[in-house]
């Protein structure tokens, strides 16, 4: 099935009122079922790239293909269904009064009949192990619970690919490990945007480094993280005492 590949070519983007190219010729290709980490320092254009994959920023230059669909106004609804974006702050993603309504929001927008919504919601929450949270209020959940529910809100739309922006931010070590296990168990193609390098190593066999709005390195996560010079050149750093070769 070729429809889950993500093909990005020569993406360029400048925010209005600025001359700085946030994305400056970014090209990448992700095959079906791959889990890829997108690494890069703050301000390297990672989040701008994520917003592009969901059609939340209008394409200025370059092209994006999600499977057989070209990014464009007419394909937006289907592209947004195919690519599930999980944003950095779960409080932005969970905006309804209950977890149930929040998870139902996406599928309801896609026109899933009301009679089937409950089943869709329960299945999505089941996939992230959060069935028990269904009637809770989102802002009373813990950080880890919020992250799970946020992932469930996009899984409910039956996406082909997941794009997660800094999924480990604000999580405690247990929450972080549980998230890694959860991601490893999901069949979707995944793009994990992070500067949490050990997490990238744990979840993604392949990594790309983005710097200055373009991909400057692409390869196996282990090799990239073993290359101290490459990391240093891109303001990336392994945590103190962390040794890739010992794993």
């Amino acid at each position: 099935m070729s429809c889950t590949t993500i093909e990005v070519s020569d993406l360029r983007f400048t925010y209005p009122g600025s001359h700085h190219h946030v994305l400056d010729g970014l090209s990448a290709s992700i095959a079906e079922g791959e889990r890829v980490a997108l690494l890069g320092p703050n301000g390297s254009g990672k989040t701008t790239f994520v917003l592009h994959l969901n059609g939340l920023l209008t394409l200025q230059f370059g092209s994006i293909r999600i499977g057989d669909l070209e990014m464009g106004e007419e394909n937006l609804p289907e592209i947004r269904r195919r690519v599930g974006a999980v944003f950095q702050d779960a409080d932005d993603q969970l905006f309804m009064q209950s977890v149930r309504e929040d998870v139902a929001f996406g599928p309801a927008n896609l026109g899933v009949p009301r009679a089937e919504l409950d089943a869709v919601v329960e299945r999505a929450l089941g996939q992230v192990g959060a069935e028990a949270l269904i009637d809770r209020t989102p802002h009373h959940l813990s950080g880890g619970e919020k992250r799970r529910v946020a992932i469930a809100t996009v899984l409910a739309m039956d996406p082909h690919a997941l794009v997660l922006d800094e999924p480990t931010s604000g999580l405690d070590p247990v929450g972080r490990r549980e998230l890694a296990e959860l991601l490893a168990g999901l069949p979707q193609t995944q793009l994990v945007v992070t500067h949490d390098l050990p997490f990238a190593l744990q979840t993604c066999p392949r990594s790309m480094i983005v710097s200055g709005g373009r991909v400057v390195a692409d390869g196996s996560t282990r090799e990239i993280l073993s290359n101290a010079e490459l990391l240093a050149a891109n303001r990336l750093e392994l945590p103190y005492g962390f040794d890739v070769s010992s794993l």
């Binding site: 969901n54 939340l56 947004r80 599930g84 944003f87 905006f95 929001f105 927008n109 996009v154 739309m157």
Partner: peptide, 9 residues
């Protein structure tokens, strides 16, 4: 943006 990405119209 989070709403748009889940098909809000």
């Amino acid at each position: 943006q989070a709403m748009l990405s889940r098909g809000f119209s």
